[in-house]
Design a protein around this nucleic acid. Structure first.
Length: 427
RNA sequence: GGAGGGGUUCCCGAGUGGCUAAAGGGAUCAGACUGUAAAUCUGACGCGCGAGCUUCGGUGGUUCGAAUCCACCCCCCUCCA
């Protein structure tokens, strides 16, 4: 990380991490002339951050690494309202209790990625409930709302769809979200001298709202920078798989699965993702790309990416666990694993289920381990030759598995399809 | 408050009394080919081994038979006030 270029904006630019910048030239000289304070907001919409949050979070870190002071804002207040930006439908409100529980979890996660003990530019985690929570309706309307023109608010691209599309709509609650986020920026300017907000490009409307408000309320001159939304070459949504979102919380997405997710990155995306999600120098990434192109073999970039991001999120231990499981399952011979290896795989996060009884049908096993949604589906998988027991393909619908199939008298590895493994423990 | 439009299987979206578990597309899954990639091809895609069963916002009706007709209710959208 020491080799991070001093010219931060140039680095961000060559990573493709800059989408929009307000008052660009002015901002550039602002940024290089002194240590600045910046922030990015994270709303509690679930009990964990997911990989989509990594881009702004790492961007905060990138700023910190060159000496700026990052504020990570948790939206204890805004999370109660719901950001309508580019959302096609109104969202269900969560209860205050639920949201405050999520706030606590997010705070813990945010702390992992920033340095809170580096003197002047130590990071700070803030919660907008602190200032928004005690705002009265009259204060909100008189002191803040007065600065906003509805005319300009309805022009925002981010709510256009909701306003114009037949069959859609937007509540006053969500429509007001922008005002709250704008107020955050103004307030952080006042409290911390924060002069920059970063966020995904979908946040541009909310950010510019804050820039205007900081000027109107405090005569502050502040800036906004947006990061690109992560897109995939095949047009699919980034960060979602068949089994759902890729979370940062190891209890929601195991390090093993997390590692596998990155390993499966398409060639068309992998170099871009290296630039987005790692601190490797762009030149170094370009070199990997060149090497992969000329090797004519399977590219290395995916493993580099998977290792870097898994290590960043789950640490050295999480990474080695993920690699250990992956190599036993995909390249090792299962029969060569020792009993201790199996115990370790369980601890490492290989999905496992305890099965009572000495013998059950393969179809039942597939369903009870969740490898198949229903008996019908399970049969289909077996008939299609998609099911392996301890590495051996089984196509017999009536097959039973039990003690005699187990390794060390209790372990059976089921595989469905090319990548999905599940460990059964007989009890 | 008034008038009109709408709620269909993961999503979009056909379907207005039986031929409809419900067209088509997307997503997803599996197989083949590969590199745990992409593209392509093949197949699956409510549940059930099966006879069959349970679905089309909810409840209750009409009918031999309803996603389709009727009543009431809930939710969404548009316009008017």
């Amino acid at each position: 990380m020491a080799d991070l270029p001093m010219d931060l904006l140039k680095d961000l630019g060559s990573r493709g991490l800059i989408s929009q910048i307000s008052s660009e030239d002015e901002f550039k000289s602002h940024l290089v002339s002194a240590q600045r304070t910046l922030y990015s907001g994270f709303d509690p919409t679930a009990d964990s951050l997911h990989i989509g949050h990594l881009v702004p979070l790492l961007a905060l870190r990138r700023f910190q690494l060159v000496g700026h002071k990052p504020l990570a804002l948790v939206g204890g207040a805004t999370g109660l309202i719901g950001d309508p930006s580019f959302k096609s439908a109104e969202r269900q409100l969560n209860t205050a209790d639920v949201v405050s529980g999520w706030v606590a979890k997010l705070q813990g996660q945010l702390e992992q990625y920033l340095d809170f003990n580096c003197g002047e530019n130590s990071a700070v985690v803030v919660n907008n409930l602190e200032w928004t929570g005690r705002l009265s309706a009259l204060e909100f309307l008189r002191d803040i709302g007065k600065h906003f023109s509805v005319n300009s608010m309805i022009q925002k691209e981010s709510v256009r769809q909701r306003l114009e599309r037949e069959g859609s709509g937007i509540s006053f609650t969500e429509f007001s979200y922008m005002i709250l986020q704008s107020y955050d920026f103004a307030e952080l300017y006042k409290r911390y001298g924060c002069t920059l907000q970063i966020g995904g490009s979908d946040q541009w409307g909310n950010i510019t709202g804050g820039i205007d408000l900081a000027r109107r309320m405090h005569q502050g001159h502040v800036y906004g920078l947006t990061l690109p939304l992560v897109t995939k070459a095949d047009g699919q949504k980034f960060g979602k798989t068949e089994s759902g979102t890729i979370w940062l919380d190891p209890n929601k997405t195991s390090p093993y699965y997390f590692y596998q997710f990155w390993l499966g990155t398409a060639d068309a995306d992998v170099y871009k993702f290296l630039k987005y999600f790692t601190f490797m120098a762009p030149e170094e990434i370009d070199e990997i790309e060149q090497a992969d192109l000329s090797s004519g073999k399977r590219p290395q970039a995916q493993s580099v990416l998977a290792e870097a991001v898994t290590k960043l999120v789950h640490g050295e231990q999480g990474l080695s666990a993920a690699v250990r499981i992956s190599s036993s399952l995909f390249s090792g011979d299962l029969l060569e694993l020792t009993e201790a290896d199996f115990d370790q795989l369980c601890l490492d996060g290989l999905p496992a289920t305890d099965i009572a009884g000495t013998s059950l049908s393969l179809v039942e096993a597939l369903v009870s381990t969740g490898l198949a949604m229903s008996n019908r589906a399970a049969r289909e998988f077996v008939e299609a030759g998609a099911v392996y027991v301890n590495g051996r393909k089984v196509e017999n619908l009536d097959a039973r598995i039990g003690l005699e199939d187990s390794l060390y008298g209790r372990y059976i590895v089921l595989k469905r399809g090319k990548k999905l493994f599940h460990l059964m423990r007989l009890t």
